[in-house]
């Protein structure tokens, strides 16, 4: 059984919702990442989404674009991200880690080599923004054989047949992108999210995480009342960007924000 399944089952039993922070690996420098991951877990994170930097992040807003650029200045490519995950695993055997990024780094490495490397690094899930289920068959099969979940996205404009398709091919959880747009953009409309989640839930038993536009404890709490998980990315990365001369300060602020979200979600 995958770590993601175990984690979501536990949370469901406790009646709690998953807090899923996203950070870009290697931002602002590679040595920052693993201690940050451990600190996030300590502050209340249930699953970690680790961004694999890509030179052409088409679905990301300016905040995560710049995070990728900073990480790539330190050559934090896919191989480096896998080694950071393995390092994290040495002292945390239970928190699921999901690699989130774009397809090309995996294509260039080769699907099978990637699947093997991900297994060795004890990666739990892979979310590839530009890999829709129609093109994902080979990759999903290789990952599934190694107990690694492939996580797929759903959008506000996804029709029912897409929801059914994601339910059929995806595992671990489904990631609902709450706004039409790029990461970190726009204003999240709670009523819209509630309506769409109700529709999604009719067609899947997989946990559903909601991301794009969750910036503070209050929104996290609202989303947690509707979904199985809350994904937060740009809000944390903004803190890294605002404290490039003092990454420890960024870390402190991220931890505070996670704690406040955790508290709001559990209360």
């Amino acid at each position: 059984m995958s770590r993601l399944k175990i984690r979501f089952d536990e949370l469901a039993k406790e009646g709690r919702k998953a807090l899923i922070p996203f950070i870009t690996a290697g931002d602002p420098y590679p040595e920052f990442t693993v201690p940050m991951m451990h600190a996030m877990v300590e502050a209340g994170a249930d699953v970690i989404e680790l961004g694999v930097p890509f030179s052409d992040p088409m679905a990301d807003g300016p905040v995560i674009q710049r995070a990728s650029e900073r990480a790539l200045e330190h050559h934090t490519g896919l191989r480096k991200v896998l080694s950071l995950t393995a390092e994290f695993r040495k002292t945390d055997q239970t928190t699921p880690v999901v690699l989130m990024g774009y397809l090309n780094p995996i294509e260039i490495m080769g699907y099978e080599e990637f699947a093997n490397a991900a297994q060795r690094a004890e990666v739990d899930g892979v979310l590839t923004v530009d890999l829709p289920p129609e093109e994902a068959e080979e990759c999903v099969a290789l990952l599934k054989a190694r107990d690694i979940d492939q996580i797929f996205l759903l959008a506000p404009n996804s029709p029912v047949d897409r929801i059914k398709k994601m339910d059929a091919v995806g595992s671990g959880y489904l990631y609902y992108v709450s706004v039409k747009g790029v990461t970190g953009a726009g204003h999240l409309d709670t009523a819209d999210v509630e309506r769409k989640l109700a529709e999604i839930k009719q067609h899947t038993d997989l946990p559903v995480g909601v991301g794009f536009g969750v910036k503070n404890a209050e929104t996290a709490k609202t989303i947690a009342s509707l979904a199985d998980g809350v994904v937060v990315g740009s809000a944390f990365i903004s803190k890294i960007e605002a404290n490039l001369d003092d990454p420890e300060q960024a870390k402190k602020e991220i931890i505070e924000l996670i704690k406040s979200m955790r508290q709001a979600m559990d209360s």
Partner: peptide, 18 residues
């Protein structure tokens, strides 16, 4: 590799960065 919505020949390094 894959870029801009399709699979095709690309200029990419060993990490898949363009």
């Amino acid at each position: 590799g894959v870029l801009h919505g399709n699979r095709t020949y690309l200029m990419a390094d060993d990490d898949g960065e363009i």
